[in-house]
Design a binder for these strands. Structure first.
Lengths: 251, 251
DNA sequence: GCCCTGCAATATGTCAGACAATTAACAATT
DNA sequence: AATTGTTAATTGTCTGACATATTGCAGGGC
């Protein structure tokens, strides 16, 4: 590991980069312990707070975890899909909520990607996946569901569908695309009719997957995409009425 | 913003979360300035180093940027696709290189996603996109290209293809899927024949897109996927010969 | 011999105060 | 009017200390 720093740039940033590179290159093995903060401070010839800032940067990227106590320290974290998903959702949510991208573009991307899952899902879905999907469909039909609960169930349904591909990389990408849209979807007021329509399409998807009927699945997915776009028009109309548009803001 | 902290958990982490939520909710507007470190320390009733650790966490996620000087401070950064892509590539590379996922799964996910881009790319590709793709095809045919250069050109070709969808969200996702595989692809030794085969398929893709022929594009993409999987078998065979497998490690 | 308690060691988490470096705005000078 | 100090505000870093958590070991009681 390079330990001489450029005095013109932030030390903590350079130290974080050095350690990060050491992790990526495999110099620091997974679950291996980094030197103690005091050690690192000596090696890089900086103070402990500076080292700590560097470590916090790495911790924020889930590259390391820290543990207190005698045998504690900073350990290289094996990247997990759960953490990566969380990260992805955060990033995607930010991109979508900060007006960087409009509703139509997000919907288009999401359904294009989700459509890509259908062939694999048709071929590999297990009874457990189908059961999850049907459980959500049942939930979506219950009375007294708030819009947010309906949305959450919708997300759960689609995640079950994506998981049916049996490909964690695909699940990881899709989780970002699907979950990040929840704040936008939460702005939609679902009428009883639109709920029924969506639930019917979910039902069609589940049936198509159960029967391995890719054509039917594609059709249902396309219908869902265009229907979601229609509902989105409602959002856009409402947003254009207000001067400042901050989709994610609650107050 | 909530300023009372749970004494059982890390202060710096809680403060980072609070500020992050304030950013996401829109309480702290884009390009807005955060209170000074001293201010934040007073508000949260902690010391300045603790506040700084929190800010470094946020800086590591590209949520804020800091500036020194009289009118300096921490400013909320507008999330950009460039930064998000960089982040995505880093995360995806880590997942792929740390043995969390095998080659076949990564290839399957990548081509499933890329296949999803074809309908949009067929419909929207501009002459500029086609020119980019053809430039890479030409490059791939030149003599004296190293394997790494060939790989880089391959990535550039596919990025051009993805960009042809005109959907930045899609591009963002795909950049992660495509670029993250480069380290793995770099392990492949491309024979003259395999290069020719790949370049031919690229040519077929470009032609199909130029003519808006989705069926042909799908066929070419599928052929590319299965051919890549074949080449990957070579990797697996070579890796199984060595006890420790660290794809990303260079030494 | 075995288990429990208490202490020492080691590490991270936090605090307080100080100084250095950078930058913008303002005042003074030519 | 333009240029040049000067000052104030803010981040970046250092030092030293204390608080807290956790492990391991030693000693005592059973």
């Amino acid at each position: 590991m390079k330990t001489d720093l450029d005095s013109a740039r932030d030390y903590s940033q350079q130290i974080a980069e050095n350690i990060r590179d050491a992790i990526i290159s495999g110099d620091l093995p997974v679950d291996g312990r980094l030197p103690s903060e005091a050690d690192l401070a000596t090696r890089f010839n900086v103070s402990r707070p500076t080292v700590r800032e560097a470590l916090k940067r790495l911790a924020a990227q889930n590259l390391i975890r820290t543990q207190r106590g005698a045998t504690g320290g900073a350990f290289v974290t094996r990247p997990s899909f759960e953490q990566a998903q969380e990260h992805m959702v955060t990033t995607a949510t930010l991109l979508l909520s900060m007006n960087t991208v409009d509703f139509e573009t997000a919907v288009e991307a999401r359904f294009a990607l989700e459509r890509a899952c259908l062939p694999l899902a048709c071929a590999r879905r297990t009874p457990a996946h189908l059961a999850s999907m049907r459980a959500e469909i049942a939930r979506q039909g219950t009375d007294g569901l708030t819009d947010e609960e309906f949305c959450a169930s919708d997300v759960a349904f689609h995640r079950a569908l994506v998981d049916a591909t049996g490909n964690p990389v695909l699940s990881w990408h899709m989780a970002g695309a699907v979950e990040a849209m929840q704040p936008l979807m939460n702005m939609i007021t679902f009428t009883a009719r639109s709920r029924a329509q969506i639930t019917d399409l979910h039902q069609a998807l589940a049936t198509a997957l159960a029967e391995g009927d890719l054509t039917a699945a594609n059709a249902a997915m396309d219908a869902l995409a265009s229907y979601t776009l229609d509902l989105g028009g409602e959002i856009r109309a409402r947003r254009s009425a207000r001067p400042t548009s901050r989709p994610g803001a609650t107050g």
